[in-house]
């Protein structure tokens, strides 16, 4: 079976320079190839959604951007990913510094077993972003406001983060990531474990956050991709099948597999 080569959408007048760009990026877990020569541009201050069936490589791709996969033994890659032109995989890349520039929100909310305040302040303190107590207080408040959580927790900043609801915990994790002033925010199915109301809040948040951050979001939920993203990339079996403006991908996909997936005929 021959597969049409991935088509890039025609360049548009307002095409924005990419904040993150993958060039012929391939990735292996041991002998198992998870990504096959993926080339994808994720424009500055836009939301790029990664969609595709389970095991298609979209999460692997997301975790390749901040090199979270480094923790797994037996991995290999080819090609490169750049962040503002800086190679993420160059030999002397400081992974710790890289992850400060690329924040991440996980599928399962993972607040630290500390107070709400400490969850947000800890990263900033470790990374020496602020010096004084009042600056730190300000940063915590600003981050919690950005994550649309401030009003719900302002009276209990020093109680345990584990007492929050699932949706609140997830927004706390977003606030925690924002507090270290990242350039890019990666979100790995951030709402898949949440109820519809909490999901809506996260989606509204994503929409607001793209004013200041470049966002890459993995989602299994087609409607969610359609609602929150500017551009959508469809992955299948480790390959990038199609990428384009979200409304085009959803209304007028160029590749048959994309259409089959978004209309629910497989996956």
């Amino acid at each position: 079976m021959t597969r049409p080569s991935p088509r890039k959408p025609p360049p548009e007048a307002h095409e924005i320079r990419p904040a993150v760009e993958a060039k012929d990026f391939s990735f292996w877990y041991g002998k198992n190839q998870a990504l096959k020569r993926v080339s994808l541009q994720m424009p500055d201050r836009q939301v790029t959604a990664l969609i595709g069936p389970s095991g298609c490589g979209k999460s692997t791709f997301l975790r390749s951007i901040n090199r979270m996969n480094d923790l797994i033994p037996g991995i290999q890659h080819e090609g490169d990913i750049t962040l503002d032109g800086d190679s993420v995989y160059r030999a002397d890349q400081d992974v710790v510094a890289l992850r400060k520039r690329v924040g991440m929100v996980f599928q399962k909310s993972n607040p630290f077993p500390k107070s709400i305040y400490e969850n947000v302040a800890y990263g900033a303190r470790v990374n020496r972003i602020t010096s004084s107590r009042s600056e730190l207080d300000e940063l915590v408040e600003r981050s919690l406001r950005q994550a649309a959580l401030w009003d719900e927790v302002r009276d209990r900043l020093h109680s345990s983060a584990l007492g929050l609801s699932g949706g609140q915990q997830q927004r706390l994790c977003i606030a925690r990531a924002l507090a270290v002033s990242p350039r890019v925010l990666l979100m790995d199915e951030p709402a898949s474990a949440l109820d519809p109301i909490a999901t809506q809040k996260i989606e509204e948040l994503v929409y607001e956050l793209k004013e200041d951050y470049t966002i890459v979001i993995v989602t299994h939920n087609m409607q969610q991709a359609a609602r929150v993203s500017d551009r959508t990339a469809f992955f299948f079996m480790g390959e990038l099948i199609e990428v384009g403006r979200t409304e085009e991908i959803f209304t007028n996909p160029k590749v048959e597999q994309t259409e089959a997936y978004i209309t629910g005929r497989f996956g």
């Binding site: 992850r99 990263g123 990374n127 994790c173 925690r176």
Partner: peptide, 14 residues
């Protein structure tokens, strides 16, 4: 949980 560890690493912790 591994997720918790990854949460720290993702913030740029050593």
């Amino acid at each position: 949980p591994r997720e918790l560890k990854e949460g720290g690493m993702a913030l740029g912790f050593t």
